[in-house]
Amino acid sequence: MLYFDNAATTPVRPEVLEAMMPYLTRWFGNASSHHTMGEAAAEALTDARRRVARVLGMRAVDVVFTSGGTEANNLAVKGIAIAALQHRGARHLVTTPIEHESILESADYLARVHGFDVTRAPVDAFGRVTPDAVASALRDDTALVSIGYANNEVGTVQDIAAIAAATRARGIPFHVDAVQAAGWLSLSTAELGVDAISIAGHKLGAPKGTGALGVRGRIPLEPLMHGGGQERGRRSGTEDVAGAVALATALDLAEGERVEAAARVSRLRDAFIGRVLDLVPSAALTGDPVHRLPGTASFTFAGTSGEAVLLELERRGVVSSSGSACAAGSDEPSHVLVAMGIAPELAQTAVRFTFSHELREPLDAIADAISASVTAVRSGG
């Protein structure tokens, strides 16, 4: 079976498993315990925090370990917005309509429970939001801007640095969901100019249930988890030391490979896109053709059902997806594609192929399998 659903999750890398194993077995102590076992766990946690912070271009104290990208996004959006409400009465949030559900649902929660006004800056047909659109949405009572670095469905990459210039000029915190960007694009918050950033380990070769939020110390953050005051009071609960070590190890490995892998995979992706568009009548690429993740190629196939094409592909030994794994099972068309102006019935024909750093061979055979699968669906089998 050929796996091309890496945007949904990746296998745990052997190096990551080896690095985390001692903290599941020999050094399994609670990092808050004041004995040898606890101190060994605490030391590993501190080292992991420093390593993650180094990639993010932040201080170690700015890193909060979480259970994944969804929790990191919830903590960023709710935590920063509620703190801004408490500190300065700010009750406005800016985002876009193509964000991951963890951002959109958090925004809906703030509107429903705390009376926030939410502005969703529009995107163009490629899924890009302009810095001017974000700047024009800012208000004196804006608590936070939260925008995805790269879209999880179509792979479109936003001009984060330009957007950050607009938010910085107004003194408004800017959070970036970098879950899909990690491993492909620079995560340096200094280069990007952002105040908070979310990542998830299982997109990078770490286990599911690992993640982190980097948030600058000057940004007030209201915790969502209350208890023993771990993570400097920002996320209570016994720390997952093995998970933190795994995340740091996976992030280090991905960062070391990033530049070479991005260039190599981009070339293979572009050749693949060209072949699919040549072979499949009425196939259309979704997302920005230039500003896109190296490992993402997504299409609509008019006259089909995306789910039916996926089943045909799996019969031919190819595994991919129709979009976000977090929305799997929904009968609704992709909110991302609809926001980009794609008709709902066409949006339901979408199929996404996402590649790993290890991709080294041309994908001609996969394009051929797509052509055969689409033909089978269009002909009724």
Rank of each mutant, 00 (worst) to 15 (best):
Q158L: 02
R168F: 06
T10W: 13
G201F: 01
R112K: 11
G193S: 02
S330M: 14
K78W: 15
E255P: 12
A262P: 09
D62K: 07
R13C: 05
A53S: 11
R378M: 07
I219H: 02
A263R: 03
R168Q: 09
S322N: 15
I370S: 00
G323M: 03
G233S: 04
R269C: 11
G229C: 07
D62G: 08
D195A: 10
G274F: 02
F174D: 04
V55H: 03
A125Q: 11
V64S: 03
I273C: 13
E153D: 15
A343E: 01
G79E: 04
R168E: 10
Q348G: 01
I172S: 00
G287T: 13
M58E: 05
V280K: 01
A212E: 00
A190G: 15
R120V: 13
G243T: 09
L45D: 00
C326T: 14
V123C: 05
T119L: 05
L213Q: 04
A48E: 03
I147P: 02
V61T: 13
E255L: 15
A200R: 04
A350F: 06
R168W: 09
H87Q: 09
S33Y: 12
T9A: 15
G329E: 12
Q158I: 01
S322C: 14
F299Y: 14
G295Q: 14
L313V: 06
Q158W: 00
A261I: 07
Q86I: 06
R54C: 14
I197Q: 02
V77K: 12
L2V: 07
G201L: 00
S379R: 12
M1R: 06
E71I: 01
P14H: 15
S379N: 14
Q180E: 13
T238Q: 13
I370G: 01
R258N: 07
A7Q: 13
D240I: 10
T296F: 12
R139D: 12
V276P: 00
F28H: 08
L268P: 05
I370C: 01
E312H: 11
A162I: 07
D288A: 10
A261L: 08
A166V: 10
V145S: 04
E358C: 13
R59S: 15
G380H: 09
L311T: 14
W27K: 00
T119Q: 03
L253S: 05
I98H: 02
G201Q: 02
G183H: 11
A31Q: 11
I103R: 10
I273P: 03
T96C: 09
D141T: 06
V145K: 05
F301M: 14
L277A: 07
S373Y: 01
P294I: 13
L221A: 10
A40T: 05
A181N: 09
